[in-house]
Write a protein that binds this DNA or RNA. Structure first.
Length: 440
RNA sequence: GGUCCCAUCGUCUAAAGGUUAGGACACCACCCUUUCACGGUGGUAAUAUGGGUUCGAAUCCCGUUGGGAUCACCA
């Protein structure tokens, strides 16, 4: 076992959606490909917005997708550890107290922006005299804390973006502790990554500037900087599909009949130079993972395209992949899968063959004739063809005129698997009655 | 506004200075199946824009336009 470890770190402030899923998937695939571990970390530092129901839904979605984890952690349980590290950083002068109110900060940002300047925090808290601080404290102001970035360029080699370089001058010192004493995302994330031995971080490119700041945090606490991969964000027709704005839920897709492996296959290849093809296992998919094949521009995610792909995938879906979900035989599955739009449609065909239905008689004389010509059982491979030539000869009908009314009578459907395949599954008794217009 | 990223068929992309600009999905046509679907074959379709550099530019450089990210007491 290698020492490779990756993590998926959702904040339980919303449901799993396509953007989240993509991030989780790539992390999982990377762990699998490198023979490493995949960890789930619940980033619930935002206690106001975090909800147990979201967390449960995220876990459900991960299980359903097959993205199993071998280890987990919860940030809300690690406050003492964060506090300890923060104390050290305060001693080292890397964390400092600030007394501006959110309103003041907002005002400063607007003023800078209006002057055409970047809205970067000016570090005025660093210039506060002990008297000023005492006055703020006396006023009842509680400090929030920032991490002090040090001068110089921050450089890393990104698995998808290549060399990335940021100057500290263009970055604000990130706030790491709120006025109420609770931690914000940045530092706990880094502490966890160090403590849990995370070697690779795959996330959306909305995090690139965070990465610049966080690299200094890794260095400040003496941790090893992981390898990063920042994926281009997905976009959609109605706007962005980033992890916050993305609204297409995994649960909804599932309810609409989209297969877990269709989602995974689709997301793993979208935006890469490889074509989107069905993969029937995550292991198989992991073997093909290659960040160098990831494009740098933002791919468009189209739900309709995913559903179309899902349907296409079903047409070649091996019986093994569904046998636990449906009580149908391999023969039956292979016979009908080419006509499925969603996998659940197999139940419809199963019931058409085994349950009773009200036939739809479009051409009574044709159906009557067909019923009378129906050969006695046992049937063999030629039975259907022999029967059809007999019906054709007697009725003088062929092609659609012949098949469509028979299909409607036998299945009450406009289209579906070949009648030749369906007929033996329906059986002579039902077939005869249905052709005669009887419910059977 | 600063910083960073991006721009090739409808979509995802290939072509690390010389290609009839390739593939996949979608779409269309034809074939197969005595229906639909499945399947097979083929086809339509692209280098945002203006300047350079070069014998030669999708490719290198600069500008323009357009898109995106970020600059939160969200993650």
């Amino acid at each position: 076992m290698s020492n490779i470890k990756v993590r998926f770190a959702p904040s339980p402030t919303g449901f799993m959606h396509i953007g989240n899923t993509r991030t989780a998937l790539f992390n999982w695939l990377l762990a699998k490909k490198l023979g490493g571990k995949f960890m789930l970390r619940i980033d619930d530092t935002d206690t106001l917005r975090s909800k147990a129901e979201y967390e449960a839904a995220i876990r459900d979605a991960l299980h359903w997708l097959g993205l199993e984890w071998s280890e987990e952690a919860r940030q809300s349980a690690r406050a003492a550890r964060y506090q300890e590290v923060t104390e050290r950083l305060k001693q080292a002068g890397r964390v400092y107290a600030c007394y501006e109110t959110p309103e003041e900060l907002e005002f400063m940002r607007k003023r800078l922006l209006n002057k055409g300047l970047p809205p970067i925090y000016d570090r005025s808290a660093l210039k506060l005299t002990p008297e000023q601080i005492a006055r703020y404290e006396a006023e009842g102001r509680r400090p929030h804390y920032r991490f002090k970035l040090v001068d110089g360029d921050i450089v890393w080699h990104d698995m998808v973006r290549g060399e990335c370089r940021y100057s500290e001058k263009n970055l604000s010192d990130p706030v790491i502790i709120r006025e109420d004493g609770s931690f914000l995302y940045h530092l706990p994330s880094v502490i966890d990554d160090v403590d849990f031995g995370i070697t690779h971080i795959v996330r959306g490119e909305d995090h690139v500037t965070n990465t610049a700041a966080q690299i200094q945090m890794f260095e400040a606490i003496g941790g090893k900087v992981p390898t990063f991969a920042h994926l281009p964000l997905l976009t959609g027709k109605e706007g962005k599909l980033s992890k916050r704005l993305g609204s297409l839920g995994v649960k909804e897709l599932r309810a609409e009949g989209v297969e877990a492996m269709a989602i995974c296959s689709f997301l793993a290849k979208l935006g890469t130079s490889e074509s989107i093809e069905p993969f029937y296992s995550l292991e198989e998919l992991a073997a093909t993972l290659d960040f160098s094949k990831m494009g740098r521009s933002q791919p468009k995610f189209d739900e309709a395209e995913l559903k179309h792909f899902n349907t296409r995938m079903l047409h070649t879906m091996p019986y093994e992949a569904v046998k636990d979900r449906y009580s149908v035989s391999a023969e039956f599955w292979n016979a009908v899968r080419g006509n499925l739009e969603v996998a659940d449609d197999v139940k419809l065909w199963d019931s058409i063959c085994r349950q009773t239905l009200i036939p739809q008689i479009e051409d009574k004389s044709l159906c009557d004739a067909a019923a009378d010509l129906l050969p006695p059982e046992p049937w063999n491979d030629n039975t259907f063809n022999e029967w059809m030539s007999a019906v054709k000869t007697q009725s003088g009908k062929k092609g659609k005129e012949l098949f469509h009314p028979l299909r409607k009578a036998l299945t009450a459907m406009d289209n579906g698997p070949e009648l030749k395949i369906l007929l033996p599954l329906i059986g002579r008794d039902k077939a005869y009655k249905r052709l005669k217009g009887e419910t059977a």
